[in-house]
């Protein structure tokens, strides 16, 4: 085990997969940094420090610093993948999927299906997402719900350094397109990471807290908030079964259903707006498949159906928080 931050786990995973497999390549804006400047490519390593030193080791054929051209970045990742490579494309902010949505939505996600199973497109798109930095409506969004509604891509959201390594390794080796969502606020989170080869298969949730009174399902940044809420509720003797789903597509339905069968109560915490969200999807799934076990209507803790506002006061009112989760748990428990 080695203790490191999520951003380090991501960098180390890319580095070791690139060493292991010569078909792995990466492209994105400023992932080298300093190209064409007096300072020179001096390894800024991307604005998130998730590519530091890669260009020096692997060179310009495999670490491609791009112009500001998201459609060309994702489109060329698609082409390189069809041609047999394993590209990792970085979207500096997940919000920029808006610029290149066609390449994801109509192209990458559909190749295999519409080509009758004759192609594979092993692209990893890394999307840096999430609110909490007062970065305003176009640099803060949790677009994973929208992307989860898209057949043909897998959607992954690590919340610990170990998961970042295990899930990113799986993403790079996976033969299907993977959207890998990295929360800005989680980059600095530290934890123990297994040394050597470490792969976490998709569709396997992680139990974060065990408890018998209520099931809390969360993903990404929301997991830490759910843990805080659970710790607080534990002081009042309320046991929360907290589940980090890790991947929204595929979804570990079994882990969620097993827990709800035991607790009879469900709260889902999701950073994306509520309509057609992962939270709504999970509540619907549970209502369908575990109706008899439910003792209360499933509850969602999400932002409101609005863009992400800028001002500090507005953004904190917007985001889910431990007190909001505690309230939701209490009202689900109070239901009869």
């Amino acid at each position: 085990m080695t203790r490191m931050m999520i951003r380090e786990a991501i960098l180390e995973t890319i580095r070791s997969e690139m060493r292991r497999d010569p078909t792995v390549m990466m492209l994105g804006e400023d992932i080298v940094g300093g190209m064409g400047t007096a300072g020179g490519p001096e390894a800024i390593g991307g604005i998130w420090s998730t590519s530091t030193g890669l260009w020096e080791e692997f060179g310009s054929n495999r670490i491609i610093d791009t112009p500001i051209s998201e459609s060309a970045i994702i489109g060329s990742a698609a082409g390189a993948a069809l041609a047999g490579k394993r590209p990792i494309a970085e979207l500096m902010f997940a919000d920029f999927v808006g610029v290149c949505m066609d390449q994801i939505w109509n192209q990458i996600a559909k190749f295999r299906y519409m080509f009758g199973g004759k192609s594979k497109c092993p692209v990893v798109i890394r999307l840096v997402y999430g609110a909490g930095f007062n970065a305003a409506p176009q640099h803060s969004q949790a677009v994973y719900s929208m992307m989860t509604s898209m057949p043909g891509v897998k959607v992954v959201m690590p919340t610990t350094p170990a998961d970042a390594k295990g899930l990113l390794t799986q993403a790079i080796r996976d033969d299907d397109p993977v959207l890998f969502f990295e929360h800005k606020a989680l980059y600095g989170v530290k934890g123990e990471v297994p040394d050597g080869d470490y792969v976490i298969p998709f569709g396997h949730a992680r139990q974060v807290r065990a408890g018998e009174h209520v099931t809390i399902v969360a993903m990404g940044m929301m997991v830490g908030l759910a843990e805080k809420a659970a710790d607080q509720l534990a002081q009042d003797g309320i046991g929360c079964d907290v589940i980090d789903i890790r991947t929204t597509s595929p979804l570990d339905e079994e882990a969620i259903l097993d827990s709800v069968e035991m607790t009879g109560r469900l709260v889902v915490v999701d950073e994306s707006p509520p309509r057609c969200s992962v939270a709504a999807d999970i509540c619907a799934m549970v209502a369908n498949k575990a109706f008899a076990a439910l003792k209360a209507p499933p509850a969602m803790v999400t932002p409101p159906h609005t863009p992400v506002p800028f001002a500090r006061e507005l953004e904190s009112a917007y985001l889910p928080s431990p007190p909001k989760i505690v309230d939701a748990v209490r009202s689900v428990l109070a239901y009869r």
Binding site: E29, D30, G33, M35, G36, T37, I47, P67, I68
Partner: peptide, 15 residues
């Protein structure tokens, strides 16, 4: 002469 940390001599084909 800069887009973020990159110069047009690199990123812009007609720099």
């Amino acid at each position: 002469h800069y887009s973020e940390h990159t110069g047009p001599a690199y990123a812009t084909a007609t720099s």
